[in-house]
Design a protein around this nucleic acid. Sequence first.
RNA 1: GGUCCUAUAGACUAAUGGUUAGGUCACCAGCCUUUCACGCUGGCAGUAGGGGUUCGAAUCCCCUUAGGAUCACCA
Length: 483
Amino acid sequence: MSVRVRFAPSPTGYLHVGGLRTALYNYLFAKHNNGKCILRIEDTDRTRFVENAQENLITSLRWAGIEFDESPEIGGEYGPYVQSERFDLYKKYGLQLIENGTAYYAFDTSEELNAMRERQQKAGIAPKYDRTVMRNEFTLGKDEAKRLVENGTPYVVRLKVPLTENIRFTDLIRGDVIVNGRDIDDQILLKSDGFPTYHLANVVDDHLMAITHVIRGEEWLPSTPKHVILYNAFGWECPTFAHLPLLLNKDKSKLSKRQGSVAVEDFKEQGYFKESFVNFVALLGWNPTSDREIFSMDELIEHFNLEKVNKSGAVFDIQKLEWMNSQYLKMLPLDYMAELLEPELKKYNFNNVNRDYLIKVINLLKERITFLKQVPVFGNYMFEKPANFEQEYLQKHWKDNTPEIIKPLVEQLNVVANWKHDDLYEATKKYVEANGLKLKDVIHPLRLMITGKSVGAGMFETMEILGKEECMERINSFLANYK
RNA sequence: GGUCCUAUAGACUAAUGGUUAGGUCACCAGCCUUUCACGCUGGCAGUAGGGGUUCGAAUCCCCUUAGGAUCACCA
C-alpha cells in the first residue's frame, strides 16, 4: 500500500512555523516514499472564519516549496478537500455511531456544562462529562431522546467512551501509548449547529481519504485515544500515528506569537530565503547526520526518516537561522538573488539598476551581510553618490596633509591601464612603498571619498565595480569640497 | 489538580550496550587583513539526580526532580 499523508490546517489567516514544519515533514515523508501528500482545510469552526485564509495558506506553503498532490485547488479523487464542503458526510457518520451504540444524544446547555465542571473542580476531580447525571439518552431514556431530537430540540452527539477498556496505540516516534478509558472524556462529535468537531471530521476524512500516516504536532497526543476509539467504533483500521515534538519559545513553552514572530509570512518579510528557512525548520527535531547543516529540499527528501525524529521539543533559535541565511546568501545563484532583490531596490528609489551590475554588487557584498535586503542599505553607495560622510571617520582619517598624499595617488590611479582591482591594488602599493606610507594611510581616505562610510567591502573591488568614471567623479567632487 | 509526553553544554543535535561523548549556532582567543565581515586555527561548555540490570549504561528498568502538552459545542 502506498503512503498517503495529509497536512490539515485550520485556516487562521497565517501559516505558523510549527504548521510549516508539520507540513514539511508530511511532504518529506510522502516524497521519500513516493507517496501522496494531501492538503485538507479544516474549517469546521464557523466562529473562526477568516477571509482569504485558505489562499494565504496555500501561497505560503508554495513559497516554502511544498506542493501537494491533492488539495482544494488541484482537486483529486477524494475531494472535496475543504471540510465545510463535506458537511453532510459527518452527520451521516455521526448518526451511524448512534445506531451502533458507540455515540449518544445529549441536550445540555453550555450553562449546565459549566456548572458541572465547576462542581467537579470544587470536588477536586478532573472535569469530565458525567453521562450519568447530565441530560442525555441515558438519563432521559432512548425514546425521550428521540422525541426531543424530532421536536427540534438542540442536541449534540457525544462519543460513548468505553470506560473499562485500555486504549492503546503505537506512535512511530514515541512508541506504545496506553490510556485508561476512564480518563477519556465523552467528546462531542457533532455540535448543535450540525458541524462536526475536529475529532469526528478528522477521523472520517482520514479514513475516507485513505490516509496511511497521521503526522501532526504533539499537542494532539492527548486526544489520540479518542480518535482510536472512533476508528474502532466505525470498524476502520487506524492509520499510523506520528506526533512531532513541539517547537518552543526561549522559555520552553509552546512557540507563540507573544515572544516573537511565528508566522512564516513574517520571516519571509524579514528577508529570510525560503531555502534557508526550510532547511532550518527541517532540522528542528530531526537530523539526518551529524556533520552537515546545509540541505536542499531534494536532499531533505532523500534523507528523511520519520522514525529518527526526536521526541523532545526544540527551541526555535533565531541566531542559528540567521547564520543559515548568511550561508545561503553565499551560495545561492547570483541571478536568482538579483531577481529577488530588484523589487527591494525600488523601495530606495534605486531604479533601473542594470542586472549585470547588480549581480556584481551582490557578489561583492554577500560575504558581509546576513540578508539580501541589506545590500541597498549596507552598500547604498553602490547605487548612489554618498550624500554625506561619516563624521567620526572623516575626522580620524582626513588629516591636514591627506590631500597632499591622496592627489598624486589619484593621478597615478587615473593612468592605470586596466581599472581592475588587482591592478589598482598594485598601483596603490607601489605608490605607498615609494613614499614611505602604509596601505591604510590611503585606503581610508579613498573609502571615505568614494563611499562616505567607514565600513564596506574591499576597496579595490568596490572601485572596480563602480567603474573609473564614477570613482573619479566622487573623488574630484570630494576634493573640491573638502580641502 | 487529572492524564499523557519529554530530559546530551546557553541553543539545535550525533552517538540505537563498549567513542578521549562527535558536529553546528552563540560566546572567547589567535591568524588573515584594507574598515567591517568571510574564512582558518584553537578554546569554553554537556549525558538532571538517585538506585538497579550488565564484565561494561548517555543508551535498558525503577524512583525522584524538572519542563512541557492537554483537559471547549477550537483546531
